[in-house]
Write a protein that binds this DNA or RNA. Structure first.
Length: 87
DNA sequence: GTTGAGCGTT
């Protein structure tokens, strides 16, 4: 399992579009676009988890600096979080 | 407009 960070997303990108954009590169086991919980507006970044590192790397190679809806998106391995539970 | 929400523990 390998998680990638997807940043610089257009506001128009939602969970569904994120999956559609990355499903072609491998088996996605999890995906989420982070949105501001109070405004409902996208924060402009999200995460996609692939079943294998090979697929994740393929997605990074294919989508990093890829123009989506007029924006060059950033794709790379996600930052490891300090703790698992987040609290 | 760039590295998580949500669960109240899994």
């Amino acid at each position: 399992m390998s998680k990638i960070y997807v940043g610089n997303l257009p506001w128009s990108t939602n969970n569904e579009k994120l999956e559609l954009a990355f499903a072609e590169h491998g088996q996605i086991t999890d995906h989420i676009v982070m949105s501001d919980r109070e405004t409902g507006r996208s924060r402009g970044f999200g995460f996609v988890t692939f079943a294998s590192a090979e697929e994740a790397e393929a997605a990074i190679a294919a989508k990093n600096d890829f123009e989506l809806d007029g924006r060059r998106i950033t794709v790379n391995m996600a930052n490891p979080r300090p703790q698992q539970r987040g609290w």
